[in-house]
Design a protein around this nucleic acid. Structure first.
Lengths: 249, 249
DNA sequence: CGAGCCGTTGAGGGGATTCAAGCTCAGTGG
DNA sequence: CCACTGAGCTTGAATCCCCTCAACGGCTCG
């Protein structure tokens, strides 16, 4: 995934992301495209900037596009059979979302922005066209599906398992991956944390406070926080060890 | 540990499922293939019959095949970051499993048989070859990935959310889909139910007993049961209504 | 300023776990 | 034949975790 060929030089201006120099190119869908194909891509892709809680797409929308996340975090909400709201996954920088649309299927979830988000909107028609010429793109697409599937299964295993405290610690760990390298993360509203971990917002609040008292979390502005990676690792290890004890008796 | 090196050449031409008349053909991967391609497929596919708890593949295995489930039920186990066992998904008749292998990736989970299972083992090399000639197959593959992803997200929303009783009711509902039309289902051991729903086996047992007393479930042989679809729907509706009440206050 | 949203914290109750006992059933060997 | 085991299942009692209900404080905005 390190650059295959970049620096094709000073690609002239367009209004769109200029994939050749895009900051997520190496991990992006069109990372493998060459010259002319890449040029055509650039005229059809549109980049969009959204702010917190804006809707990218939702169930029922006629899906004609997929999106690459250039920055920010996207959450996927859906309602359970019982009607409650549940967040089933989040996507971050480099992820490709809305894959259902490539199969002419309606979107399954509602995709919403956590904080400001930048996207590339990619028409499905463009991908269909390119895929016929560029075999590598097909493989890349399958890879995206697989990556998404892995994220979903990991969500089941790590964020939907065990006591609330453990789930919270794992969420912080996941948020750290999506956040800045200095540990700054986007911390959702308590109610959203609840929807991710299947908790009430009160319990989510108590856990956030607990993390704060323990020095794992440091709340800065309303929706931003800093994670102490070291303390998080220690707390997680302690929590996991405890679980192992009772399981190994 | 089941056979990994097959296809040693002298495979008799006639031992395979005959896709053209296979009972799952319409929903199967090669449902769209025509004449000659189909004939070639039949000489390379091997059908396997496994019994309860046999391992189909596991993390670390060199993935060289994918499998179509012809009958029975397959569960996917993995360990959480804390080391506990968790079942993250199940597959049934018509499902294609082990898709990671198509991307030369190691399998993510351990795939195990619930009860007797019949599979078609399909070499990845065969799919790669066919995909170059038959465009429809590529689309079919993507559809499989998407279907699997949807199943995984539904698992999060329905089997990992809410009180234990609701999760159990939803599990029964899901097992019914995979079972016979007369309501006969394969009911896992209590410990496995726990691994699916994130419960202790005692709680799983209590819930099974409860379902039985309510007439939702009727245990026959050790691992088989019959579901009263009507009673299950009613119990689910009641459970969901209750949830909605407290949520809507 | 009051209204409303978000977050925090406390008190009490309920649901799931934990610990523990006892049951059935298959297999084994006396 | 029957005692003896061990695995799986069931059930009870006590504990603990999380939910529910409730009050309150900070903040923005009309």
């Amino acid at each position: 995934m390190s650059a295959t060929k970049k620096e094709t030089g000073k690609v002239p201006p367009r209004q769109n992301p200029m994939c050749a120099v895009c900051e997520v190119r190496c991990s992006a869908l069109f990372g493998s495209l060459k010259g002319p194909a890449l040029a055509r891509v650039q005229s059809e892709i549109e980049d969009v900037a959204l702010s917190a809680n804006e809707r990218i797409y939702g169930p029922g929308d006629a899906g004609k596009d997929v999106y690459t996340v250039r920055s920010g975090m996207v959450r996927f909400e859906r309602h359970t059979e019982g009607g409650e709201l549940r967040i089933v996954r989040v996507a971050g920088r480099g992820d490709l979302i809305g894959l259902e649309a490539l199969l002419q299927r309606p979107y399954n979830d509602e995709a919403l922005c956590c904080g400001p988000v930048k996207l590339c909107r990619i028409p499905c028609a463009l991908i269909d066209k390119l895929a016929d010429e560029q075999g590598a793109l097909r493989r890349e697409l399958m890879l995206r599906w697989q990556t998404t599937l892995e994220a979903s299964e990991a969500w089941v295993a790590n964020l939907a398992t065990g006591p609330a405290r453990r789930r919270m610690l794992r969420l912080l760990s996941r948020l750290s991956e999506l956040g800045l390298p200095d540990g700054t993360i986007w911390l959702p509203r308590r109610e959203k944390i609840g929807a991710m971990l299947d908790l009430t917002f009160e319990t989510a609040s108590r856990l956030v406070s607990q993390m704060r008292r323990e020095g794992v979390l440091d709340l800065t502005t309303p929706r931003l926080a800093r994670v102490n990676a070291q303390a998080l690792r220690e707390a997680s290890a302690a929590q996991d060890a405890e679980g192992r004890d009772s399981a190994t008796v």
